[in-house]
Amino acid sequence: MARAQVTFKDIDLTVSAPAGTRVIELSEKVGSGIVYGCREGDCGTCLCQVVEGQENLSPPSELEQKLLREHFAGKQQRIACQAQILGDVTLKPA
């Protein structure tokens, strides 16, 4: 199974994760400061900033696109409970 290196800038930690892992799952495991509420894409609380590797996350679903618009998110921001890791990426809380 393919793996990716994921760096959380807020805690200065890089870990290896299987491709397809949702950002929020990994963030919770390592203790990153990406906060969340529902974990289902309803609240948008888990907005995170992609520092590097935007192309290594899954494309935003219609639901995620809606949440990003509602929260006036920038181009480098994603909803952590929706975004799946496909390759190396560096993230931090929004």
Rank of each mutant, 00 (worst) to 15 (best):
F72E: 09
V89P: 01
G44P: 03
C38P: 06
Q77G: 12
S27F: 12
L26E: 02
D42T: 14
L63E: 15
Q84L: 13
E64K: 06
V50P: 00
I79D: 01
L91M: 04
P59Y: 14
G31L: 10
E40N: 12
P59L: 15
L67P: 03
V15D: 01
K75Y: 11
V23A: 02
C48G: 03
Q77P: 08
L91N: 02
I11G: 07
V6N: 05
G44W: 05
V23S: 01
I34R: 11
P60G: 07
V23Y: 00
I79H: 00
H71T: 13
I11L: 15
E25W: 12
I24R: 00
P59V: 14
T21A: 06
D10N: 13
G31C: 10
A2N: 07
T7A: 14
A83K: 03
Q49D: 15
R39K: 15
V15H: 06
A73M: 12
A19R: 04
D42F: 15
V6R: 00
G37M: 08
Q84C: 08
G37D: 09
V6C: 07
G37F: 13
I24Y: 01
G31F: 12
L26Y: 06
L67H: 02
R39T: 13
L91I: 06
V50I: 12
G37H: 08
T90H: 06
D10Q: 12
E28K: 08
A73Y: 02
D10H: 10
A80N: 03
K29P: 06
V50C: 13
S61D: 07
D42Y: 08
V50H: 02
I34S: 05
A17R: 00
F8V: 04
N56A: 05
V89Y: 03
E64H: 13
T45H: 07
G53K: 01
R78K: 10
A4N: 00
P93K: 05
G53M: 08
V89I: 09
Y36G: 05
G74V: 06
E64L: 10
E28Q: 08
G31Q: 11
I79T: 03
E40C: 13
L68W: 05
V35E: 10
L63R: 14
Q76G: 08
A19G: 11
P59F: 11
K29R: 15
V51F: 05
A2C: 09
K9T: 07
L68H: 03
G74Y: 08
R22S: 02
E25R: 09
T14E: 13
L13N: 02
L68D: 01
K75N: 14
G20M: 09
A80S: 14
T21R: 03
L68S: 06
Q84W: 03
P59M: 09
S16W: 15
C43Y: 09
Q65T: 15
E25N: 11
I24L: 09
N56E: 03
Y36R: 07
V35S: 08
Y36N: 12
Q82P: 03
A4C: 08
Q49I: 06
K9H: 08
I24S: 01
L91R: 01
D42W: 09
C43G: 10
G44D: 03
V50G: 01
Q84N: 09
T45V: 12
Q82M: 10
E62M: 14
T14M: 09
C81P: 04
F8C: 04
P60W: 10
V30T: 04
Q5R: 11
T45W: 06
